[in-house]
Amino acid sequence: MKGFLKRFYVLLIFAFLYAPIIVLIVFSFNDSKSRGNWSGFTLKWYRQLFHDQQIMSALYYTIIIAVVSSFVATVIGTAAAIGIHNMKKIKKTIVMNITYLPVMNPDIVTGISLMILFIFLKLELGFLTLLLSHITFNIPYVILSVLPKLRQLNKHMYEAALDLGATPFYAYRKVILPQIMPGVITGLLLAFTLSLDDFIISFFTTGSGVANLSIVVYSMARRGISPKINALSTLMFVSVLLLLLIVNRRTSKENNVKKGSHA
């Protein structure tokens, strides 16, 4: 009896979590515009979606921004992590506190503070400012994924490489980098997903003509509901799900390897 109650409760919670998403997905295939009743299967909303100029340009910006910002953030972040790892204690504390700032600060404050900066610098709000903002909020997550890997490193490996005549740069490239690579890739994927997903910071730091998908959803949802957004939501949900599965498989593989080496 107790076991049944427990299972029922968990099931109820999962229903609560998934019902809205499932309804959204199901009704993206609904022929009628009204959400109340089902009037047949259709793909017309998806077709309309791909002919919508605004949505297609938003898709383009979302992907470009995510690719470029996650890549730049990974390069800067990985370098920063190596530097931070070798810092003296006080300096390290200061830098790490600054790193945590955008993670802890409400997104809306990060967003408007960046907007103020860009207007202050007389930068026109648009693609460039959006990109700079995404890089900014992505870097800390890359650092936080790479640092644990650096802590696991064997210090003597690098010294051994130097003793054997490697230049410092060569030693980094051939000895350190391959060992921290899993953390770097995880950071890259995390940054990519966060960039794809961001709304609040993007909302404040972009200008007319440049919008990502979240901004389009927000402005459409404010005007009311359209099955086109359902279709868009479905596609976005499925792609984030796929990405998450890839990241998850990576980390669980790593854990298995780790477990194996300890055994």
Binding site: I76, G77, A79, A80, A81, I82, G83, I84, N86, M87, K91, V95, I98, T99, L101, P102, T110, S113, L114, I116, L117, L132, S133, I135, T136, I139, I143, P168
Partner: peptide
């Protein structure tokens, strides 16, 4: 080799601290 974190530090000063 702390200098390789300098681009980051400069970046964060411009885009997090100053704002």
């Amino acid at each position: 080799r702390n200098w390789i974190s300098y681009p980051y530090i400069i970046w964060m000063i411009i885009f997090i601290v100053v704002p």
